[in-house]
Nucleic acid binder design. Structure first.
Length: 124
DNA sequence: GGTTTGACTCGTA
DNA sequence: CTACGAGCCAAAC
């Protein structure tokens, strides 16, 4: 099932969008977020040259490989985005707290934990 | 083709 | 602080 996402989208000849490519690019980027830090959907989209495509980032994470640190991606408000599977939201929070990211009142302080992608690998 | 649907964001109230 | 609304735009129907 998840396997589906690892391969290019099953599209026909009329098919263009390189969502598969984009998704992989998202995964590569997310893989670089160090433990103890977070990034937002919009931020990642912008880093990939696709400003305003935050939702695409979210979609790419919806079916990402389980080994990806997807839990380090939160929304612009520093909150864990709502999704169909509530369990994964819980998992996200637990994983974050496990690596030292404080989630107070359902949100993380971006000013404190945001990953700048600038090579700063030191968790706060 | 048109419509719906979001792991989104931002401005405004 | 919360609550909407509008903007966004590609994927999925």
């Amino acid at each position: 099932a998840r396997r589906r996402w690892l391969d290019p989208p099953a599209t026909t000849a009329t098919a263009p969008p390189d969502f598969g490519r984009f998704a992989r690019a998202v995964w590569r980027l997310v893989a670089r977020i160090p433990p103890g830090r977070v990034a937002t959907y919009g931020q990642l989209a912008a880093m990939l040259g696709r400003a305003r495509h935050a939702r695409l980032v979210g979609r790419a994470l919806a079916g990402c490989p389980s080994e990806l640190p997807w839990h380090r991606v939160v929304n612009a408000a520093g909150r864990i985005s709502t999704r169909a599977r509530v369990a994964s939201m819980l998992t996200q929070r637990i994983r974050l707290e496990h690596e030292g990211v404080r989630v107070r009142r359902g949100r993380v302080t971006l000013r404190r934990y945001r990953w700048r992608g600038d090579g700063e690998e030191r968790p706060r």
